[in-house]
Design a protein around this nucleic acid. Structure first.
Lengths: 212, 212, 212, 212
DNA sequence: GATGAATGAGTATTCATTCAT
DNA sequence: GATGAATGAATACTCATTCAT
């Protein structure tokens, strides 16, 4: 394995900025919900955190559920954009995986509040979460397609791509979870995720790559 | 992979029965919370599901939080008992892993409501969940200790046990999650979990066992 | 004024004992209600304090309200018995007052829980308190009749007996209240009530007795 | 006794008006609690009486207890302001007493709901009533200080001021109680209180003033 | 009689949402 | 657009009372 960090692939994933106020409120909501859980967060808390009045929240969102949906959608969008861009590049399956997972962890390392929410609420039967249901849906879909393509191209040994995608996605979430709960220092957190990703990729290389 | 199911290791994990009413209510609560999420579940729903009056719930639990805590504790207890019993047997690290993870999935396959809750609520900052915090805490601790012991005994190649435990635990949760969300038929679910576990163990055998 | 205590007139006012259990429960209830207030007392607390089961309370009383009514009635009965006996004796108005008020304070000094309750709840619009309404009703009726008789006999100067009875009854309650709230030591409390009563009687002698 | 009413000393004690809504709710609550007792009053009743929604009550008060505390505090405040202003005037002890007690009764005659509450709840062990504990605390403190000062100045004969203050405060409360319970007509009530106060002051003049 | 588990009507309190300013 | 007071439906929890054992 080369010496440089697999998370070094960093890029401006977090380009944001659209409607000032809306974004301001989304971020505030993400912080509050990440720390309290959705059920224990109130619109008042969110408005206070954002420094606006309650009414203002309703000028940008239809309600609490809509706020949650939006947080999921933004997070989803970031990944989807990157993943679809990744599809176009000419890379091996393992390279694609490395970059996709790396980007996922990188985004979390930069702003974990949304990630916490996805982890916490993604499994709950919110009528509002809808298509984003499942904590790593976009990620899982991406991983699955990479695996399927890789197997088709003979790069990877044949295996049920749904199952393996579930394992890989789960492992990444497990990494996140362990370090979101366990590593307080943001600096150390980056390193920890980096280590974990390297370990995971190593396992996959040994276990999945077709014998040449 | 050997021909017999890795989930065949089934055993009477789900011995229950204690205080009739309390257990009745716990189960009903687990079903309701699993399907609605903790925040959207009401004591009335739980009482109705259990076929008792609201007041009766309060004769056995101090409140909604206490119910959740109890559900976690029972689930925790089941695993802990099995894991500690597993420690005493004379097994290789991989065998121990296979049996431990198998039992975990087996318990879920039999009664998934508690598992859903642990998956959903285990990450939330409930003041009540306490030491059980983290969706796979007991499992992670078990996996970590098996890995550490295995590495010390020279059975496994050296690797940061915290990181690898996080990956393995996550992969198992990912498996659960995918199938809890995706496979409606309980029969097929068992098979799916079985497949997933086999795949995971295969990966680990290739990737973790020290070269002989 | 003679040197001996005005409360020395003590007599076995607190003869009780009737139906063992009923009395046991009444006393327990009085203690609980005196310390918590009627509204904050529960049948459970009372049963626990009495060392019986909740159901047992209902074998002797029709409910919480009935319990309160009974406590009032017993207290009322003690005074009424003594007062009516006092009517028969050949005494001056001031002597009668001295003995009546003395007995009242004496009973309180011996067992203040019922007195606290009468003080606290006597004014509340309980549908259950009924005729005992008003914290010092029996006392007031007694005082009023002594005053009226005394004025008729020319012993006391003429004055509206209702008004004066209210003042005297109030003063006695004020005394009780001050010392129930203020003097923790039961011994000192006796002395304090004694002092207060002497002072009150002195005022009344000067202010009410008809000039000879 | 002079011909003019001792309650004639009337003054704008009941200046109110502050935060419209809060005051509106306080008054409604006072009416409800006065007629039902604290324990039997519900927030719904209070909100209905005030003509607002339940939630609105909670926009101004932290809860039922806070409402009670506030009612006590306002009543306390009215007296305290008047009493402290009275201290500054150049008056004899008896004059001070006459005006202080007069103002107390006057305030009650104008708005008896708060007075009923203080009488009813002031003795209960509400954790919320705190320093206002005791039904006539402010009044008692005032009376005591007047007595002590009067005795020091040689205007009054020596006597334990605590005891005498308890007697006087109690007598005033007795008066209130008798007439709050007994005199339905508000006009007659004023006269009755006036009579009672005159009688009390007459007794005190005879009984307490130092022989010249 | 004694017991105490079961009951469910009753209540305090919260909080998403609206809307007049 | 921004505000935040008002709203009232929703919900956790209490506790007097009953009744089968």
């Amino acid at each position: 394995m080369s010496a440089h960090s697999v998370l070094g692939v960093k890029q401006a994933v977090t380009a944001t900025g659209e409607g000032d106020k809306k974004e301001l409120i989304r971020r505030a909501a993400a912080r509050v919900i990440a720390s309290q859980g959705f059920g224990r967060s109130t619109i008042d808390m969110i408005a206070t955190e954002a420094g606006v009045a309650v009414g203002t929240v309703y000028n940008y969102f239809h309600g609490k559920d809509d706020l949650l949906r939006h947080i999921f959608a933004v997070e989803h969008g970031k990944r989807a954009a990157f993943f679809s861009e990744l599809e176009k590049r000419d890379l091996t399956a393992m390279e694609r995986l490395a970059q996709g997972l790396g980007m996922h962890l990188c985004a979390v390392a930069e702003d974990d509040s949304a990630a916490r929410i996805v982890l916490q609420e993604g499994l709950l039967p919110h009528p509002c979460v809808g298509e984003a249901r499942g904590r790593g849906r976009v990620l899982a879909v991406f991983v699955r397609s990479v695996l399927a393509a890789g197997a088709a191209a003979g790069e990877l040994r044949p295996a049920n791509p749904d199952t393996v995608a579930a394992l890989i996605t789960g492992a990444v979430q497990g990494l996140l979870e362990a370090y979101l709960l366990g590593v307080p220092d943001p600096g150390g957190r980056r390193v920890a995720l980096d280590d974990g990703l390297s370990e995971l990729l190593a396992l996959l290389r040994i276990g999945l790559e077709a014998a040449k």
